[in-house]
Design a protein around this nucleic acid. Sequence first.
DNA 1: CGAATATAATAGTATTACTATCATATTTGA
DNA 2: TCAAATATGATAGTAATACTATTATATTCG
Lengths: 224, 224
Amino acid sequence: MKQLLGNLKIAVHDKLYLKDPESSLLGKKIIEHSILLIDEIGFEGLTFKKLGTAIGSNESSVYRYFENKHKLLLYLTSWYWGWIEYQLVFETHSIGDASEKLDKAIEIICRPIVEDSSYAHINEVLLNKMVINEFSKSYLTKEVDEENKEGYFSIYKRLVHRLEEMIQTINAEYKYPTSLASTIIETSLHQQFLKDHFKSITNCNNKISTADFLLNFVAKILKK
Amino acid sequence: MKQLLGNLKIAVHDKLYLKDPESSLLGKKIIEHSILLIDEIGFEGLTFKKLGTAIGSNESSVYRYFENKHKLLLYLTSWYWGWIEYQLVFETHSIGDASEKLDKAIEIICRPIVEDSSYAHINEVLLNKMVINEFSKSYLTKEVDEENKEGYFSIYKRLVHRLEEMIQTINAEYKYPTSLASTIIETSLHQQFLKDHFKSITNCNNKISTADFLLNFVAKILKK
DNA sequence: CGAATATAATAGTATTACTATCATATTTGA
DNA sequence: TCAAATATGATAGTAATACTATTATATTCG
């Protein structure tokens, strides 16, 4: 993985930033500390003023990279899904059997994150936590339709379509491949959240993983 | 339904308000217009100042009923789940067959909302839209654990447990009844949202309902 | 009818979410 | 290498938000 992704830049929609944060040290510090700060105080608590202080600079420097914190959230979540997508594509590429392929994909989506040293400024473990807690907020807005039209969610949607294709290959007669694909991703995040905060309404825990639940689930649904 | 619920007050956790909005005309107007206003401008756009104007009063009056808009959101979503729960309990009560019972429950959770004249000040159609768009935001916060301990989410969790019980009755060997129950509710909201905003990643539309997807889904998962 | 309670109006505060301006440092490219 | 361009840093300012506090005015209730 490390070797494969070593020099790959995760391509995020370029209207999500004013200046590419990957293009400078300061930009990378913004990304780095936004993840750390959101983990500490939550997305609602984040302000560009605090983020400015965290990077040893001030508000105005952050505003030169991102219009507002909503765009920053879109940037971070897009990056995350892009990163997951690469792993999924590379790690399932050589698998011939469709069922095995989908299982692997589910494992990749659900597995505990390990840090990827290719991106030194990004703490993937915390970024995953952030996606679990904040991703929904990136689209549950009044502006979702415009922003969707702009293409801000295309990486996420593409990931859903990759799962959909696998599902269709396994069972072409199954009537809801797209919904099942989007449900897999949504459920992987939701059950993870429940495990951390509403233990009484999930069976997922340290012994039973979200992947176990989803693998069982998908196997039964797609059985002919 | 109307007759049954006619005089029933949906019981919402009493720490969610400072003064019970059901106890006065002004309180009911706050509830009524908060739903309308959130539909218009979204939860992020809502302020107590705007809400005050909407009810023909001002900010300070609203603050006498609710501490802040987060508590108002918790109140509204609790009320919604309580209302759904009553329907579910009454409408499935007399059904003997467990599978039939769960199917009915899913239909109730997913069905297009019709206004319930028992609660004149609540527009259930818009409230349902609000729950789809805003419910996640009520728990995706830094305070979720404390608030959960306080019992602010108990109606929602109780609803999940009602589904869980049905699932267990149908198939006692199924290993993930709680996760399946929480997934059903989450998916019903999520697929509805996708249908409205991300059509390309769902199969649900005017012809195929979210209930169709979930019914098919649950039947396969619980088949012995 | 007077006391208690609910509502309305106004004012004030700290913070947020920016925009604008200017100074200074750093890079780069002729 | 030096001037120009660009990036960063610091400060100031604004409208709006999310409240709290106070006082005045209705309303209702014993």
